[in-house]
Design a protein around this nucleic acid. Sequence first.
DNA 1: AAATGGTTAAACTAAATGATTAAACCATCT
DNA 2: AGATGGTTTAATCATTTAGTTTAACCATTT
Lengths: 202, 202
Amino acid sequence: MISQETDTEQLILEAAKKVFFKKGYDGARMQEIANEAGINKALLHYYFRSKDKLFEAIFFNAFQQFIPSVVENLNADISFERKIEIFVENYINMLINFPQLPSFVLTEVNRNPERIAEMFGKIGIIPSVILQGIQKEVDKGNISAVEPKQILANIVALCVFPFAARPLLQIVLTENDTAKYNVFLEERKKEVSRFIINSIKI
Amino acid sequence: MISQETDTEQLILEAAKKVFFKKGYDGARMQEIANEAGINKALLHYYFRSKDKLFEAIFFNAFQQFIPSVVENLNADISFERKIEIFVENYINMLINFPQLPSFVLTEVNRNPERIAEMFGKIGIIPSVILQGIQKEVDKGNISAVEPKQILANIVALCVFPFAARPLLQIVLTENDTAKYNVFLEERKKEVSRFIINSIKI
DNA sequence: AAATGGTTAAACTAAATGATTAAACCATCT
DNA sequence: AGATGGTTTAATCATTTAGTTTAACCATTT
């Protein structure tokens, strides 16, 4: 019984993720999700009551995955440069595994910006910690006196944007060649940290 | 007569832009556009035949505005660093004036990536020119030997991302304070070019 | 002022879609 | 075998929505 339930529920979640990621909330159709899962449309409502609820499950999960937890890394006893290298490598690796994550989250976040604040609360992330961590490095004189805000924005932008804007950048940068663009993304793991470190070193 | 037509047509375009920018193609409703324009829904179809056609008009315009034309700037007889400063300042200024442009274009580009290639043709932009321009600077030894692809991606990412991800970044960076975030965006005009130049100088 | 032709609106249509209901199904227990 | 209770489906509902039709409107021309 239980295995039955988790199986179907899981099946639905995977199908819903696929469809929502591709079409967004407004473009997704319950029928299409049902087809994708190979089940009857009424089952979706049986398990999740409404499109909203089903979407919420998918979105919360995606949001959690998209917002990186950097706290452990920040406290580690290594140089700031090394911290950046590790973060960038890990985060871009994750994005390579879930390439539609940025465009999905950004689209939905823009569609409904109000509910985002409470989302941060739910996943227990305190943004200020990261900024303070960077400020400490400035105070210690390890990096040049740039506003932590700007540094953090730069790191995230450089990691995420190539995924969020892939359809455009793939044309502009690699003649719309998917394989070439994948190479470009691989190279960014080293390139982004080199770039960041270069720009903030004393 | 003519002024009548262009007036109504313009009215529709402005209303459509407002609604499409906020809700996206799938979330937008013809009725809402009509309300926004203060006219009857049938008039939308009278002037634009279909939702698709109306959207196409809005999207083409937005796309054109979003893709910067850098050719003149690239050929100007000034240092590469100065070119970057000018581009970044102009582009971020434009984005400050049309802040929803990035999220709208990126959302729609991801929803329908296939049609983008021909869009570039229509607006007469040859992406390779920009990359070649950067390569020339590398060859001349003006900047360090970084792949032009990476440099261009970095410049665009740093300019666009703070607008595309504003609802998230505003919480993380400026405690969800709109005025503070606007200051942050202003500061980026200087910050981004400083950042780029620092990272590619020999 | 009557006719003409473009413009606007009200009413309507057909299809799609999220949601509900009621019945069928199926495994487990007695 | 029959009852029980959760699971799945087919059929249906109510609403929304893009698009159409028909008539009213209005300025210009004759």
